[in-house]
Design a protein around this nucleic acid. Sequence first.
RNA 1: GGGCGCGUAGCUCAGCGGUAGAGCAUCGCCUUCACACGGCGGGGGUCACAGGUUCAAUCCCUGUCGCGCCCA
Length: 898
Amino acid sequence: MTLDSRFAPADVEPRLYEGWEKVGGFACDPASQAPPFTIMIPPPNVTGSLHMGHALTFTIQDTLVRWRRMQGRDTLWQPGTDHAGIATQMVVERLLAAEGKDRREMGRDAFLERVWQWKAESGGTITTQLRRLGASLDWPRERFTMDDGLSAAVKETFVKLHNEGLIYRDRRLVNWDPKLQTAISDLEVENREVKGSLWYLRYPIEGEPGQFIVVATTRPETMLGDTAVAVHPDHPVYGALIGKWAILPLVGRSIPIVGDEYADPEKGTGAVKITPAHDFNDFEVGRRHNLPMPSVLDRQAMVTLAEIEDVMTSVPGVADPAFVRMLEGQARFAARAAIVTELERLELLEKIEPHTNQIPHGDRGGVPVEPRLTTQWYCNAGVLAKPAIEAVETGKTVFYPKQWENTFFAWMRDIQPWCISRQLWWGHRIPAWYGPDGEVFVAKDAAGAAVQALARYGHEEILTQDEDVLDTWFSSALWPFSTLGWPEQTPEVARYYPGDVLVTGFDIIFFWVARMMMMGLHMMGEVPFRTIYIHGLVRDEKGQKMSKSKGNAIDPLELIDTYGADALRFTICALTGPGRDVKLSAARVQDYRGFVTKLWNAARFCEMNGMQPEAAFDPAGVKLPLSRWLLTETNTAILEATAALEAYRFDEYAGAGYRFVWNNFCDWFLELSKPLLAEGADPAGAAEIRSVGAHVLGQILRLLHPAIPFVTEELWDRFGYGEACSLIGTSWPEPVAVPDAQQARDELDWVVRLIGQVRSVRAEMNVPPSKPSPVLLQGASDEAMGRVGRWMDAIRRLARASDVSVLTGDVPKGSALAVLDEITIVLPLEGLIDIAAERARLSKERDKLIVDAKKTRQKLDNADFVSRAKEEVVAENRERLATADSEIARLQAALDRL
RNA sequence: GGGCGCGUAGCUCAGCGGUAGAGCAUCGCCUUCACACGGCGGGGGUCACAGGUUCAAUCCCUGUCGCGCCCA
């Protein structure tokens, strides 16, 4: 074994990943006695490909999973993908369009066949990419939301909730996406600010020629469906009109003027037109006043007159059915223009004001949503939400950061009925069948519905299944248990439900987290997970959200190709603080690749110096201060890393590993070990250093494996710490007892500070490294000189000292000085240093201490401080002052001598 | 309008009652036998602003300003 001078991720990663799979490194074991640890993957869309958001969330999940696995937990990271109803249907429809085909011409069955075919060919993209990232998912357990098993779970749930009255059909306004021609849920609507106009329309008062009530509207085209004008009951002018009737222009219908507090006297004219079938607020007003609710826009948002045909009347100068009929079939915005022009011609348009308002858009289709009165399936989320709220209130499920609980509560406490039917083909078809009289039979299958129908009709009838499919999130909501085999009572359901941690972004708390909580509690009687870890968004280096359309998206696979998966993963960990977005750029990944390289090179050094794993190594048996110091530092790193992971502090975890490897292991242990390993050094000491070095390198590999699995496994295997691909299954390190730990820490701390002081003086005095100098110590204790004796070679090497000895006589002329505790360090550098520069340096040092001492003295002179502050704080300040005074005196003496 | 979060070194962020930290960037020195994807050393901050609590505030409280997000 000789390690290459460079770590080559591309050569190593595929081999190790296959190796892990081959040894069963990712597999859970339902028969295991170990406590389980479960993370359900948020199933990516089958249509998806790996983006930075995925890289973030899956790196976090894999880090947790690998860590818990090493801790001995029976770990299940459940893989799978989501059928993503609308998204997938759109993808395949686009493909068909390119072939000049249309799904409606093909028919439902042929279309679905085509989607399944597409899924078989292209649906595996993201799972392949997840492997590139190193994600240790239990692949043989991969699930898809439209699998038979998961479909059974969907049917089971639908039927149960229907039987309980929690799923029902209702005719009410829904958000209708005219582009996709389906209902969508409230959550799939996003408000966009659009610059538009406010049109002021005159509606003539019936029986009072020349009198008008003026309504302000942002949607003049829906006036065809107006069935009232509403004014605030207390409106000073219009209040008097309540009870009278207006003539609806163009249509000629008589519509009542009603009093309703919905009409805001401060807005527009204080009077609003009421179109119950095309506006959510108007719908409520319509309900309160028992108004007719004609729809005047069809599924494509084109004008349809069927429901107002019989009320259309000619009113000279006001209404002309012929004009209105001409609008039939026109798109809503074309109709708007025609209507406004016509009203203007009739002098019924008072004015137009520019107006900016929030227009609801479908998040998939991207066009304005049209509220439409239709019959849809709904889920009574209000009832299901209650136990979910309680579970979070009582801490059965905890959010990290806790902050997000407020967001969850706010949404859940005001939750609206969830529209779960979609007028699509790709998805779980609603298990409801209709008889010839429109009666609905809900059952898991057609046979079950037929039984119900027989009971009702007394004979067999032809039933037709509901054409619609369920909202994709309905099946996602069951993911935590449907993937485990439910409704079958499998060992997996018993063992891995509820899961431990759900890791996801805040953007799907409502879409997914809340619904899993509701369904999990209702169907399983238990929360789906104990902890919900919410991470931020990945942004570019300027803090902009990454998106394809903006062109600022970074492809994680390109980063992996260039820098390696470990570099990307470590960067993500290092930048992932709680509640923070992650600003990522290739430059940052490049930076952290440096850490991977550093580790590789440190390992090469270990290899070159004969450090080999020893099964029998006993940390309690080490003798050298350097060994004992390294072991205590290792303990600290282990404790820090473990605590960080327990607290979901991936930044601190990465930081602890980084500091330990770079600043402790490389900068000091390896450097200080060099003289001990050199030719002619004490063989027993060298042997101990080799043993402890190999041991700690192994601990480092364990400690960092969750974040950077590839490089650590490669080194683990190459050094022979275990069988090939065994690091993934090795135990997480634990602190060990170290003999005389404090003494080792004190000694090393002192040596480090001594070397630091000498280096600092030399650097500031511009003494070239090629010119070693003697180091003289004034006022050194026997203990200090003992340390010097033990560390002579290291000090020589690292501090560029020709010799270290006690200064007995006067300080030689032209020396540079530094202070270390009670010792004055003297570097006789006559001729090499600039006296003026040394004077400036010492003065600066002294002045800093004087300021410090002054502040401390003031504090100690304050009787309140001395009497009220904690004892140890007062003592600390006393000591600080004494040290400062002593150092000031010595620096002053040095200055005087110059 | 309601809610949440954030304003700390040039940049990205940590710290959150006891005299300011890291990484990167920057400057100087060094191609020293693991590593120039490196080593050593240095410079750089009135911790957004104004009040208050406290012996002590970057940290707690109140207000102001600026930025971002969610909901209406």
